[in-house]
Design a protein around this nucleic acid. Structure first.
Lengths: 344, 344
DNA sequence: TTGAAAGCGCTAACAC
DNA sequence: GTGTTAGCGCTTTCAA
């Protein structure tokens, strides 16, 4: 592979001159610059970033650690961030944790080893001590989920507030037995969203039934199983279900389709997340809708700014909350009369 | 950040010993290895990959260049490859081209600059000359689409065959006016799939109507516009439509939903791609289904093997075709009788 | 079994 | 305006 030295020798000048010309150093004459540029172009010279990094430069690479990328939400996040970074000449290293702390730790090690300029991460439920220590050596920012032990820099959404308003929406429509399926409390968003769910009841003087809550690992499989479990109840069968995670929403839908449950006649639904097809599913799935693009854009721009300023750990403490909306479509109806009578 | 020298000094030994111990060199005594490992662990030492690369090592980073990542197909591809690479200690650099050749060229330059070990790419319609030249310096493999000018290494699918069989499926069900919306012929998969469409007619002695074909850039917007255009015809309105791209399928569905067209009563449909919700959309969308996982897995494993063997350009000429299937669901019916009479 | 030293490609400090 | 040189952190001879 062609090096700056090759270009220099071909032109009979010094390597440093080549370097300066390529970096558009003001001390170099326009004539030399043109000469160097042309030769570099012709010879197919592309600067060696690892060498630059070793000299103390920043790596132009940013790590993104997310649970997975095969769904609309994280897909959009990756898409938005990659595009955002690309505009500033930064590349995106994609690390998938699978929500597994061991894998998370290995990935952090890889990223630190690659000397990325920074890391944006959706932390797992309980990051390992080693992960924390490694992160403390490198500029990083938490996305969506948050652990105070991982730093004070976080971009997230209004988890509690939006779930509360979705729950209130159901209560106002007459639902009294509302099921909730969400992530475990060890995940910060899981705790916040469940909390929003409960707050809606305490603020409305309608009884909250803890036995209608289900919490677990946010996967499609868990969502499907929890939905089945919740609807198999002998009494206080929920007339509506709210989900607090994208994967769980997919699992719930999978179950509803499998069990051929009529919505919203037999069951009202409020899903979580953002996918084009939610608009079409059975005439439209009402969802709690965080904006992946807004969230990722604000996070990406802010982070780039810090990285470019050469900010090292710790980054300034900063919390940004992106407001979500409740996209009202057709999956919520009033509960069936007979059932409501029986219940109240 | 802690270096090998720091560890060496703390232990009063030479850097080379530290390096060898970390690399599990057989010449180093077990005792020394243990000592070094423990110190490294305690001090939070993580080897500097850029430095290794400069020494001549490989970078443990592989570039993936795809048009976008915010859809189920490419999302799965990225997911599968990232997981596959991770197991072997390789990281994935995600570059999105947006199907734009300028952006593609810049991204290639970035990847070459980062000295990635190799590149897996879905090339744009007409890569720039400069892109070709840069790629010739680095191990790379084409994915899905293929340009002979970019090398002889390719992993793709049975584009022509599967579209042919899907078309035949419609013909056998009595459809005579079948619309096709696919990518431009400058994209290799676009040409191959359109070809399969035409072959189905020539093999079945049913007239092929070129005016029912639409070709353009494979985007949601184009798919939506082409669908509208195709269904606005005064005569020979298609009784069925096949799509030859994921994005175009999404655009077609968007139009069908917007125009409130009944499927399959008014129009039969065969989509392209793989998304969980295709199974549910209006009782099930029949689709041409390439397996993103299979495709990505075979490509990833083969490529890793080459990269690990330290293979440089040109990679051995190799073409692998992953077989797709036609997932038959409920979006195809026989054409309406009156229309069929009128047509024949 | 371990140490010393060279050198990968680049940039920045210091000449001239 | 351009050249010379040192050194980033690592691995790999070559010595011991």
């Amino acid at each position: 592979m062609i090096t700056a030295r090759d270009v220099a020798e071909k032109l009979g000048i010094a390597v440093s001159t080549v370097g300066r010309a390529m970096a558009d150093d003001p001390r170099i004459s326009a004539k030399t610059k043109a000469k160097v540029r042309k030769a570099a172009e012709r010879m197919g010279y592309v600067g060696n970033n690892p060498a630059r990094v070793m000299r103390g430069g920043s790596s132009k690479l940013i790590g993104l650690m997310i649970p997975d990328v095969a769904n609309d939400f994280y897909g959009s996040v990756a898409q938005t961030l990659s595009t955002c970074f690309d505009r500033e000449g930064y590349g995106l290293v994609l690390s998938l944790t699978g929500d597994d702390r061991e894998r998370e730790m290995r990935q952090i090690r890889e990223l630190v080893g690659a000397r990325v300029a920074g890391i944006i991460l959706v932390p797992t439920a309980r990051p390992k001590r080693e992960s924390k220590r490694m992160l403390s050596q490198i500029a990083h920012i938490q996305f969506l989920r948050r652990h105070s032990a991982l730093g004070q820099t976080w971009f997230g959404m209004d988890d509690s507030a939006v779930v509360k308003s979705a729950t209130r929406y159901l209560i106002e429509r007459g639902h009294r037995h509302i099921g909730y399926i969400g992530a475990n409390d060890v995940i910060s968003t899981g705790a916040a969203r469940a909390n929003g769910f409960r707050m809606a009841f305490s603020e409305s003087a309608v009884a909250h039934h803890p036995e209608l809550e289900r919490h677990g690992v946010p996967t499609v499989e868990y969502g499907e199983a929890a939905a089945e479990d919740l609807l198999a109840r002998a009494r206080r069968v929920p007339s509506a279900i709210i989900t607090g995670s994208i994967h769980i929403t997919l699992g719930l839908i999978r179950y509803i389709e499998r069990a051929k449950i009529k919505t919203p006649e037999q069951l009202s639904l409020i899903g979580f997340g953002e996918a084009p097809w939610f608009e079409w599913w059975r005439g439209g799935l009402t969802t709690i809708q965080p904006s992946a693009e807004d969230l990722a854009t604000s996070c990406g721009l802010w982070f780039l700014e810090q990285v470019r300023k050469g900010k090292i750990e710790p980054l300034p403490a900063y919390a940004s909350v992106t407001i979500s909306k409740l996209a009202i479509r057709s999956s919520v109806a009033e509960p069936m009369m007979d059932r409501r009578r029986r219940i109240d």
